[in-house]
């Protein structure tokens, strides 16, 4: 039953991705990316990753869509017709990459199996049993994120901070003051 829901959600994701690749109206594409993220969040819930689903729903369906729409509002919302000369090579490269991937992925252990290296590694015991004894915190994802992999998360926070500062440098008030004629142009 779970597999049927999973397969249909994944099929919907693929159809949405195809529509994203085909459509030329970028506003529609931005809304479809929101839908794509929401479907991904549903799949993550079914795959037991509730924290990830939460993040994907908040970030993908909310934040990313707003950012794409804001960019389209600042630029233009219609994609020009791309000449077809790139389509064939792109399809060849994407197709061969996909073929290699499917060949490689078929070497992975079966989906959901318990005897995979991921689940048999001793660290799994440490994360799922010892961490609860050590911290009394039920959500092991939080324990791992903030305590066991604290260095990693510190790095991620610094990356987010840096990205925010870069956007401010590119689009912020300081960047605009150097081009005084732009304010006048924006008003008319």
């Amino acid at each position: 039953m779970l597999d049927i829901i999973n397969v249909s959600l994944l099929l919907m994701m693929i159809v949405t991705a195809l529509a994203i690749a085909r459509l030329r109206s970028l506003f529609a594409v931005a809304m479809l990316t929101g839908l794509f993220s929401l479907l991904a969040a549903c799949v993550f819930v079914l795959l037991d990753a509730v924290d990830v689903a939460f993040t994907e729903a908040a970030v993908g369906a909310g934040m990313t869509t707003v950012l794409f729409l804001a960019t389209l509002g600042l630029t233009r919302s219609r994609e020009k017709v791309t000449p077809k000369d790139r389509a064939i090579p792109a399809m060849l490269v994407a197709g061969s990459c996909g073929a290699v991937l499917i060949y490689a992925l078929s070497g992975l252990p079966e989906f959901g199996a318990a005897d995979t290296p991921v689940h048999q590694h001793p660290i799994t015991e440490k994360y799922l049993v010892t961490s609860i004894d050590e911290t009394h915190i039920p959500n092991t994802v939080t324990t791992l994120l903030a305590s066991y992999r604290g260095f990693d998360t510190l790095g991620e926070v610094v990356v987010i901070f840096t990205a925010g500062m870069v956007v401010l440098m590119l689009l912020g008030r300081c960047a605009r003051e150097r081009e005084p004629d732009q304010d006048a142009r924006a008003k008319d």
Partner: peptide, 30 residues
């Protein structure tokens, strides 16, 4: 037994194709 991985490969292909075949920069980011 491998259906999520096949979906992963197909989605990767679609994403890669969109990045390479389109000239629009917003479309590339999507």
């Amino acid at each position: 037994g491998f259906y999520p991985y096949i979906a992963v490969a197909i989605l990767l292909m679609i994403g890669l194709y969109t990045v390479m075949a389109h000239s629009n920069l917003v479309k590339k980011l999507i």
